[in-house]
Design a protein around this nucleic acid. Structure first.
Lengths: 245, 245
DNA sequence: CGGCCCTTTGACGATAATCAACGGGAGTGG
DNA sequence: CCACTCCCGTTGATTATCGTCAAAGGGCCG
């Protein structure tokens, strides 16, 4: 894990925009008391920059902080007692990871950077204390965790009830929506993860992922070239995913 | 949903033991300030009794409370936009459900009783407020939600990486462990849910569930007769589930 | 007693896994 | 600069697990 010099200017040296690193990093509503904002910013530690492959935290490592992704992408995976690896999530800018560690005081997953990635560390003990003082923050954190629960449950449905085509279409639509939410193109983006990671996440083999990509390309739903994806027919893709247009 | 007369005596009329309905219902450590216990008990509403098939809350219904199961069993399921139903959890005495509703102010799942079931309602707004005053409670609730997250992630692994045999074996072991935790027999218990529910939960068809049960019976791992299960060879079952003995 | 629902069992088929081979790009070393 | 290797991704052939379709048994309730 390597520290970046750029991160030095964030969040307390306000000479660069640091949107995702501060309040918006945990998706808070914008209309807040400036004093409260100040309190929250105080506990958000200086950002950290990770290189591709760097580990943010390790499964069974002591749980200290949750993290907000500012830039790049993080993969979280769990290795069970049988040695099986399961990718449990990809985290993009604006998203929070690490909450799995609260229950057992140890991280339940390992988090690695898929790209050059910037994160902000939020020490949990301080977050807890501040949550007691700021009701909106407590509520907000409850929501973040609740959201993670419902997301995981959606994944459960996706994997247990849907075909390979439906899973991959849903995955692409989810990535597209998350890009669009950040004011980026929802129709053209890069996949930060490997086919292996996608397959693992979706409960498919790498070969199946590859075949489905090819099938989508032939059907003019998307254009794929390596990590680059362009969605050519979003309605068609939603039909495949069986999601209302 | 029917109110029980027995529940009237709980939790504030102390003439019956009501362990699971009070603090232990959310698995709190026992060594607490009596005043704090009092505060918490005040917000836990009178218990409710449900008959088999009664709905505790409905997907998309307004989120008001989380619930602690005192007796019986609850099934939670989600119906997605495509009409697909996914059982996302079974809740036994001592377990908390409803946290999925926090994020969107609406329940994300529907919860129905599988048996005659007693629950305690915990209004969330009051829980939030009290959590701000009682740090241990806030921490505890964070943990409950974190636990739900890691449990869901385990299910993800189970469904996406394991065979039908492994899934069902893991399921039986989990039920056994949860019974044992409540000082009940871990080797002999009743399944409160149908084969259909088990199959849906584990991402299998009812026929596959039935066949696997039969296979386990033939291999003398368990004895099944309808809803009644007896585990004859726990080590063997753990081997099948690929869980360390 | 009859009907209904849940469960079991059997036969068959389809989806995705497995096994295998190959192509291309990146990095390394001669 | 080129040859080599390694990793990642693609494609093909075959297999296996589980789903689908079908039928029948057993328990419960009216």
């Amino acid at each position: 894990m390597s520290k970046s010099t750029a991160a030095q200017s964030c969040p307390h040296n306000a000479n660069i925009s640091c949107g995702d690193c501060r309040l918006s990093s945990i998706c808070l509503p914008l209309s807040l008391d400036t004093e409260d904002i100040g309190k929250l910013d105080e506990i958000v530690k200086k950002g950290t920059q990770l290189q591709r492959g760097d580990t943010l935290y390790k499964q069974n490592g002591e749980f200290c902080s949750v993290y907000a992704v500012r830039a790049g992408a993080i993969k979280a995976y769990h290795i069970d007692s049988g040695g099986q690896e399961q990718v449990v999530g990809f985290y993009l800018p604006g998203e929070i990871l690490g909450t799995d560690g609260i229950a057992g005081h140890r991280y339940n997953n390992t988090a690695v950077a898929l790209d050059t990635t910037a994160v902000c560390e939020i020490p949990f003990s301080q977050l807890e204390q501040l949550s007691s003082e700021l009701p909106f923050l407590q509520r907000h954190f409850f929501r973040i965790m609740s959201r993670e629960i419902t997301d995981d449950q959606k994944m459960l449905t996706l994997i247990s009830k849907n075909t390979a085509d439906e899973r991959l279409a849903s995955f692409l639509i989810s990535l597209s929506a998350r890009h669009a939410q950040r004011q980026l193109s929802g129709s053209q983006f890069l996949l930060p993860m490997s086919r292996q990671d996608i397959g693992n996440f979706l409960g498919l083999t790498i070969e199946t992922v590859s075949r489905v990509f090819t099938r989508f390309r032939k059907n003019l739903l998307i254009d794929v070239d390596g990590k680059s994806v362009q969605i050519l027919n979003m309605d068609g893709l939603k039909d495949v995913a069986r999601i209302a247009r």
